[in-house]
Amino acid sequence: MPIKPSWGSRIFDSVNVALLLAFALITVIPFIYVIAGSFATQKELLMRGFILFPTEFSLDAYKYIFSTRTLVRSLLVTVYITVAGTLINLFFTCLMAYPLARKDMDFRKPILMLIVFTMLFSGGMIPTFLVVKQLGMIDTYWSLLIPGAISAFNLIIIRNFFQQLPDGLEESAKIDGCNDLGIFLRIVLPLSMPAIATFSLFYAVGHWNTFFNAVLYINDHTKWPIQVLLRQIVILASGGVGDSTAMESDYVAPPDQAVKMAVIVVSTLPILLVYPFLQKHFAKGVLLGSVKG
């Protein structure tokens, strides 16, 4: 049924596959090193440096990190922030992006300029901290969910995606008696699944990496997300105690390299697994195919 591919096309394909596989290999090898390292002994990591397979297999690092109260707790905090935060993000972002994508919307340009301006200029950490404080969000999870509810960057790109939807959609829906909210919910959103999937990923990863705001806004360490723990261990393991300005310092025993790597693995794997699940929404032609169909 399909036409037999030409020679040129076949060569193109094999070169393409080869290049991509090579690139994938380059990107994945360091991660394999981290995984291998998490099962290795301190001696092997120190003496051999870069390893892809431990000669002496050890589970000590995982035993240690799971023996702390911190790991599981902060992992749960992160999952909560990520899920709740992403839902909030998607709601607010899409809701705002759609009207701004409509050509018949008034004040579209000034509103967009207002948004772009916030990408370039910001009041800085301290005034933002004060706003969060004045809204009573300090020490609550709201401080990690609401102040970043909309990313101007994502908003502008989602708007661009919405703009590329065929123009005729709204007219036909209006004739069917839909109001604008109805059009958005019943027609635009279902057609934009690839965009939604993409931006859920972007937002989710952003929340997963929440670190500085957590330390800044939340004083109760039992509410800290996993990145705080990860960073502290990574920095301690690389020998920095964090405050190099002080003239005096106390000796802080660095955690074993394997512990560092085990924490990286445990804190990265869950979010890595999100993408493969979202991939089905990227299948070619989902968007227009379904419109025509």
């Binding site: 950490m125 901290f129 404080k133 330390v215 800044l216 109760d220 960073r231 964090g242 405050d243």
Partner: peptide, 21 residues
């Protein structure tokens, strides 16, 4: 007691000093 990871202590402290909180 509010603990702050040593790696971020100076940042948090200067923000807290600056915000007067």
């Amino acid at each position: 007691v509010s603990w702050v990871p040593s790696s971020t202590y100076t940042d948090k402290l200067s923000a807290t000093v600056a915000s007067g909180e």
